[in-house]
């Protein structure tokens, strides 16, 4: 259960992006792939213990490109083989992301 560590890192990155003197965070959007090693459900449960901002999670699809036949396939974490020819030598196109995508900020006058 390392999602709390990940949440702390996320809050740090979000605050950095907002700026030290910036308005409060309203929302934080992350993109998480199935091979990121982070569980979206656990992250969503841990987040409110650290911040009142909304946590929005975008699920990144898991896709590979086959080195043998060049086909791109949607795959699962347990089976990354090419869905066209079955070869296991595939290259990950996406699905291991663990990214802070964007932050939303409160209207400044609401907090003056």
């Amino acid at each position: 259960m390392h999602e709390l560590s990940v949440c702390r890192a996320l809050l740090r990155e979000a605050m950095r992006a907002a700026g030290a003197e910036g308005p409060p965070l309203r929302s934080v959007t992350v993109r998480i792939g199935p091979l990121s090693g982070v569980d979206a459900g656990l992250l969503a449960r841990a987040w409110p213990t650290l911040s009142a901002a909304d946590l929005l999670i975008e699920a990144a699809p898991l896709r590979v490109s086959c080195e043998a036949c060049g086909t791109e396939s949607a795959v699962t974490p347990q089976d990354l083989t090419c869905r066209a020819c079955g070869d296991w030598r595939t290259r990950l196109l996406g699905g291991d992301e663990l990214l802070l995508v964007r932050i939303g900020l409160e209207a400044e006058d609401a907090h003056v």
């Binding site: 890192a9 996320l10 907002a18 309203r26 802070l100 932050i103 900020l105």
Partner: peptide, 27 residues
Amino acid sequence: MCESCGCSITPRTGPAEVAVLTRLLAD
């Protein structure tokens, strides 16, 4: 000022969204 992407944010009148796109575990 956003350090990550260099964009300028001055949300004086309404809510603002800022694109960031950094690794969560950047530190």
